[in-house]
Design a protein around this nucleic acid. Structure first.
Length: 360
DNA sequence: TAAGCGTGGGC
DNA sequence: TGCCCAAGCTT
């Protein structure tokens, strides 16, 4: 039997909760680079970077990205290749492709000013319900819910909610609750405080309830069940895929690289020749496959290592080689022979960076 | 609705 | 070590 929102909020001291939470945030919040001003563009960039990504990982990327693209217009005018390079290593690369497309639209349609309209902003590429609420509340002070994993964890404990947070439909229930309890005087600090509390105090494991500013409002703490919340079902085990890759050098000392397709895993990033699409069973078949697909003659080949890389939904096992080759065709848009120096301009996924390190 | 989509850190 | 995770969105 699930309670409705009205029942959940019965006897809940909203004003007191808002004050306890916001006061704590204003005292204890971390000094983070995207909190230095309320520039909607910078807030937006930070929110996209922070999707499924830790604060400590994001900080150096944020500094570098904002230095390189200090304004929305500068990002809108940048080349895709350069933008992707600034995202190299952050993961979930569709985020930056969508952000790039979105800022171009903002430049064209809204003169480079991030729209404060929920309808307009949320229609942009890569902007979902969370990002909409986060940017509108933090940058513009608009009282919209910004429900992420932190908020669902915190509120599942505060209100003893046992819905499975792995289900998409559960987020709406929390948005409904937040829209009832959000501070209209300070929606920015309220939303950020819920997330900050989840990151610093109301953590997934071993929550620090003894120093929680809203302990007196928490049903889970009162019942002693905080470590059993939130309820979250597990995903299925990732598939394993094995294939080979090879770093090829021609007589001029150039390296062959290939741009990945514009959709799917690691879209638009660069890689070394491989047989991912049709894994071969032995060296002979591998040489034949690479020769035909990449229009090269492989003159020598040597194994340089074995690599495993775990993605969210798949595990790659790569046998890596290096070799010398003759090129039979000039390069094109997706297959290029580049100098070792030029390699640095192209964005590679981490697994191929590791293979390059083994080659060097 | 659920799968696809990265990476690095913590325990 | 092998899991779980971290400020989600798209299809």
């Amino acid at each position: 039997m699930k309670e409705n929102v009205q029942q959940i909020l019965a006897h809940f001291h909203i004003k007191q909760f808002q004050h306890d939470l916001i006061h704590w945030f204003q005292t204890e919040q971390r000094d983070l680079p995207w909190r230095k001003d309320k520039d909607p563009y910078k807030i937006w960039v930070s929110e996209v970077m922070l999707q499924q990504t830790r604060v400590d990982t994001v900080i150096p990327y944020f500094y570098h990205f904002i230095e390189k693209f200090p304004t929305l217009d500068s990002l809108a005018e940048a080349e895709e290749e350069e933008v992707l390079k600034a995202w190299e290593g952050l993961g979930y690369y569709s985020r930056i492709r969508h952000l790039h497309e979105a800022v171009k639209e903002v430049k064209e349609k809204y003169g480079g000013c991030v729209p404060a309209s929920k309808e307009q902003f949320s229609s942009l590429k890569g902007v979902g319900p969370y990002t909409t609420g986060a940017v509108l509340s933090i940058a513009y002070g608009i009282p919209e819910p910004a429900v992420d994993g932190n908020v669902m964890r915190v509120l599942s404990r505060i209100f003893y909610i046992t819905d499975d947070i792995a289900k998409g439909s559960t987020r709406k229930k929390f948005e409904n609750i937040v829209s009832k309890i959000i501070s209209h005087d300070n929606p920015s600090d309220f939303n950020q405080a819920l997330m900050e509390l989840g990151a610093l105090v109301c953590t997934p494991k071993n929550p620090s309830c003894f120093l929680c500013p809203v302990q007196r409002h928490c049903r889970a703490f009162a019942e002693g069940v905080e470590t059993e919340l939130p309820v979250k079902t597990k995903g299925k085990a990732p598939k394993r895929i094995s294939f080979r890759a090879i770093v090829l050098m021609n007589k001029k000392g150039n390296i062959l690289i290939q741009k990945r397709p514009p959709r799917g895993l690691l879209a638009n990033l660069w890689q070394f020749p491989n047989d991912e699409h049709a894994p071969t069973r032995n060296d002979e078949a591998f040489v034949k496959e690479i020769s035909e697909r990449y229009h090269v003659v492989i003159r020598s080949m040597e194994r340089i290592g074995s690599f495993e890389h775990v993605f969210s939904h798949v595990v790659w096992h790569i046998e890596a080689y290096k070799g010398n080759a003759l090129e039979l065709q000039m390069g094109d848009e997706t297959n290029k022979w580049v100098t070792i120096d030029e390699l640095k301009q192209y964005a590679f996924p981490v697994i191929y960076q590791k293979i390059w390190q083994a080659y060097e």
